[in-house]
């Protein structure tokens, strides 16, 4: 489903990611793990055709993200770090609007709204203005927006950030329920989330892939947190030594 080869991105002189390669099969749920500023968002943005890479290739469902970007974009549902919400619109008209942008006709859009309102439990706020919604609902509207056209690939950037534990759990179960029918990539810097939702973990640290393994292999009996800290800490120590 996703093939990434030697993907590199520089912001001017500053390195975003360097030489990232991985493959993700259909129906997998993969967690991007890493501290803030490690390059998770950059990788995702390249995959969803938001920005071009400096070098390297990425293909989604066989289409190159740069040369066949329109096909790629049709197959993707994307929830950015800040959900792209228009405060003065109602949830229904917003979802309709996104559906139209994603290529649905009127009827499909209406069905899509029904479906995602149900899956994301938005029925009670469907005619409220987005600006008046709570943080949890806003996040769910963001998720619903990514799901409206029933995409093959879901890219979720920090889907649980800033939510309280209850909301967090709701979102997680929502993501889990989507597994199987969709390929899902989600990024987070919160470890337990990965453990609870993902089958596979890709750890990105300082723009490079530090680890790529199935969850069981990655932890290898240890606690996830320990494994992660070890991975990152080792490098950090090394760096200190160099200095």
């Amino acid at each position: 489903m996703i093939e990434v080869e030697h993907l590199t991105k520089y912001y001017g002189e500053v390195r975003g990611i360097e030489d990232i390669s991985f493959k993700i099969g259909k129906g997998e749920i993969v967690g991007f793990l890493g501290p803030n500023g490690s390059g998770k968002t950059t990788t995702m943005r390249i995959l969803v055709c938001y920005m071009p890479a400096t070098s390297g290739k990425a293909r989604i469902a066989g289409f190159d993200v740069e040369s066949r970007s329109m096909e790629v974009r049709k197959k993707i549902g994307y929830l950015p770090e800040h959900p792209p919400l228009y405060n003065e619109m109602t949830v229904r008209s917003y979802l309709g609007f996104v559906g139209r942008l994603r290529g649905l006709d009127r009827k499909q859009a209406r069905e899509g709204i029904e479906r995602v309102a149900h899956t994301c439990s938005l029925d009670e706020v469907i005619d409220r203005m987005i600006g008046h919604l709570s943080k949890g609902f806003r996040q769910r509207v963001g998720l619903a927006q990514a799901l409206i056209h029933n995409p093959e690939l879901l890219v979720l950037d920090e889907p649980t950030i800033g939510l309280d534990p209850k909301q967090n759990a709701e979102i997680r179960s929502l993501i889990k329920s989507l597994a199987g029918s969709h390929t899902i990539i989600l990024s987070t810097h919160i470890l337990p989330e990965v453990a609870l939702t993902c089958e596979r973990v890709i750890v990105i640290h300082q723009g490079r892939i530090a680890a790529d393994a199935r969850l069981e292999e990655f932890t290898r009996g240890q606690d996830l947190e320990q494994a992660f800290l070890k991975l990152i800490g080792a490098e950090e120590l090394e760096k200190k030594r160099c200095e």
Binding site: V48, C49, Y50, M70, E71, R73, K74, I76, Y78, P80, H82, P84, L85, Y86, N87, V98, L101, R102, G103, Q145
Partner: peptide, 11 residues
């Protein structure tokens, strides 16, 4: 409002 991201990633 960062909604530009929606427009830029839609087909």
């Amino acid at each position: 409002l960062k909604t530009e991201e929606l427009l830029l990633t839609a087909p």
